[in-house]
Simulated assay, not measured.
Amino acid sequence: MAVTLLRFTFYSVLIGFVIDLFVGDPRRFPHPIIAIGKFISLCERAFRKIFPKTPAGETAGGACMVVCVCIVSAGVPAGLSALCFWLSPYAYLALSSLFCWLVLAAHSLRKESMKVYKKFKEGDVEGARFAVSMIVGRDTGTLDEKGIARAAVETVAENTSDGVVAPLLFLFLGGAVGGFLYKAVNTMDSMVGYKENGYLYFGKAAARTDDVFNYIPARLSALFMLLASVVLRYRPRNAWKIWRRDRRKHASPNSAQTESVCAGALGLRLAGDAVYHGVLHEKPYIGDALREIEPFDIVRANRLMYCTAFAALVVFAAIAAPVLFLAI
C-alpha cells in the first residue's frame, strides 16, 4: 500500500506539472492559496490581540502564527489525501494531481509577466506600469519604461525559484502536503515578512522560516537556470560569472541566486534601489549592463524560466523514479 501511495504521488506531480503548463491557475475555481492567505490574515489579527505589543511579544506572536498556519496548511491536504486514498488509489491520484497543479505557477508567472510585454507592444506605457504593479511588491509609480521592464524580468527570475522549482521539489519530497506546506511558508513571507509597516518583529519568524525553506531550492534553481542558459545559448559563461560574483548581493540569502544567473544570461544589470511602501531601499546592482534592457527581455526571461522548470522536472523525476520503481 505504501508503495502504491508513493508511486501515485509521483504520477500526480507529473500530471500536475503538465496541467499547469497548459492551463495555469483556474479562474472559476476557489484557489486554496487564496484560502491560505485569508487564514494567515485571520491568524495575524488573532495573535496580535493575544500577545503584547512589544518587540518580544510581537516576535512570539509571529512565531505562533507560523506554527499554526503550517499545521493547518499541511494538515488539511493530508487529511483529504488520506481519505481519498482510503476510498480508492485513483481517487487519491485525481485529488493529488489537482493539488499539485494548484501549487505550481509557471503558466501564471508567464501569463502575468507577458501582460507587461503586450502593453509595451501596444505602446501603452501606463498599461505596462499597471500590469507590472500586479506582480511586484515595489512601488511602480516612478518607474520609467526601462524600470518597468526591469521589474518584470526580475520578478520572473526570482519567482522561477519561489513559484516553480521550489514547490516542485517539495511536491516530489512530500506530495501535496509538502507542496502546500511550502506555499504556506512562502505566502506568509510575502504577506508579513517585511521590516516596515509594523512587521519588523511580527514578520521575523515568517521571513526566517522562508529563508530556511528556500535555501536549497534557490541554489538548485540557479544551477538549473545555468543549464537552461546553455540550452538556450543565453551567454552561459557570463551567467556563470555573474552568479559566482553577485549571488549574495541581496538582503535575503536566496533572492539573488536566480536573479544573478538571469542578469548574466541576458547581459543586463538588474536590481538596484527600489521603493517599497513609500520607503526607499538601497540595494546593490546585480549583473553588468552589457546592453540596455528592452521589453523583449521579458520574453527571454520567460523562456529561461520554462527551460529551468523542465530541467528541474527531468532531474527530480530521474532521481525519484529509480527509487520508486526499482529499489522498492
Rank of each mutant, 00 (worst) to 15 (best):
S88P: 09
A91P: 01
L102M: 05
I34F: 12
R48A: 13
L93G: 08
M65C: 09
I36F: 10
F99D: 05
S96Y: 02
C70Q: 10
L102Q: 03
V67F: 10
A63T: 06
L83G: 05
L93H: 06
A63Y: 04
C43A: 12
L102D: 03
A56Q: 13
I71P: 05
C70D: 12
W86C: 10
S88N: 15
V76D: 00
L42A: 09
L83K: 11
W86M: 12
S96K: 01
F51C: 06
L93W: 03
C100K: 10
F51G: 01
T59A: 11
L42P: 01
W101M: 01
S88L: 07
L95P: 09
V69W: 08
E58W: 01
R45C: 06
A78T: 10
A56C: 08
A74T: 14
F99H: 04
G61K: 00
P89M: 09
G37Q: 11
I34H: 11
A91W: 07
C64P: 01
L42F: 13
G57H: 04
F99Q: 04
S88K: 08
I33L: 11
A60R: 01
C43F: 09
F39Q: 04
V72C: 08
E58D: 11
R45Y: 11
V66E: 04
G75E: 04
V76T: 00
G62E: 02
K49N: 15
A91N: 03
K53G: 05
P89C: 13
I40R: 07
L42R: 04
L95I: 11
A91D: 07
L98D: 03
W101D: 00
I71C: 13
A56S: 13
